[in-house]
């Protein structure tokens, strides 16, 4: 089996007295979709923000291709090939698709002027590659649907060299049809074979549909991990609900 592109060992993140992550392990492989599952407040967003260089870990190690790394800023992380698509997508509604696509990494000509035509073309082509033929990249992002915005954010991360693509609940705010669109996009990226995807979701069905490997978080701890084949439906449901036995829950509910 190939080596993991990204490996996380005993990652701890405290906010003052509060332990948001209490020693989490994670391995992600190129060409695989790694689903990160867990209840609200489990620490999923904190984990990926640490991977993305937004938070500095309190303790623990991050390895890229076996080498230990330290991220001091989001720029460090993105230079190391970690591309993050946040829940809020980090998108500016009033700006055009192209301006969003290249935000912070604009192509400049002499005199620092923007190479707008070239940027328009690249934005269009890159989005086409993963499934959207967006004919006019000069239009404001505000006119796009939620699914299209996801695609923009994903295409942007890949174009700028993401080897690990982190998707924080990309389907949670979307309607059924657009959710399927995003899952298709994920599959397309997976099919390239060179990109590792961390897919955060609440949705059991979605994770079954596209996931190769699962990690379950609860209260900042890893409470279970395994491949799609290893984890059965019962087990999945147990881990999704934070490790409590379904039976226990039924009893608790019955007691009310």
């Amino acid at each position: 089996m190939a080596d993991p592109y990204l490996r996380v060992e005993g990652l701890v993140k405290r906010f003052g007295p509060f332990t948001a992550l209490g020693g989490v392990d994670l391995e992600v492989f190129p060409g695989e979709v790694h689903c990160l599952l867990g209840d609200n407040g489990a620490g999923k967003s904190t984990l990926i923000k640490t991977l993305a260089g937004v938070h500095e870990p309190t303790d623990g190690k991050i390895y890229i291709e076996g080498k230990p790394v330290e991220f001091r800023s989001p720029r460090d992380a993105s230079d190391a090939g970690i591309g993050t698509v946040y829940q809020d997508l980090a998108i500016n509604q009033l700006l055009s698709v192209t301006r969003n696509f290249f935000m912070g990494r604009e192509l400049k000509g002499p005199l620092g002027t923007l190479r707008m035509d070239e940027m328009n073309m690249i934005a269009h082509d890159e989005m086409l590659k993963i499934g959207i033929d967006f004919s006019d990249p000069t239009q404001a992002v505000g006119t796009m649907s939620g699914g299209q915005r996801q695609t923009l954010a994903i295409a942007r991360a890949i174009y700028f060299g993401a080897k690990v693509l982190i998707l924080d609940e990309p389907t949670s705010a979307l309607g059924q049809k657009q959710q399927m669109g995003v899952l298709k996009t994920i599959k397309k990226v997976r099919a390239r074979g060179d990109i590792a995807i961390i897919f955060i979701t609440h949705n059991e069905i979605h994770s079954r549909l596209v996931g190769d490997r699962f990690t379950f978080l609860a209260l900042g701890q890893t409470i279970g991990a395994g491949t799609n084949a290893e984890i059965g439906d019962e087990e999945m449901r147990r881990l999704m609900s934070g490790g409590a036995e379904m039976g226990d829950l039924e009893q608790e509910l019955a007691a009310i």
Partner: peptide, 8 residues
């Protein structure tokens, strides 16, 4: 925040 996340 979006701008900052993109390195602006």
């Amino acid at each position: 925040e979006a701008a900052r996340a993109n390195g602006v």
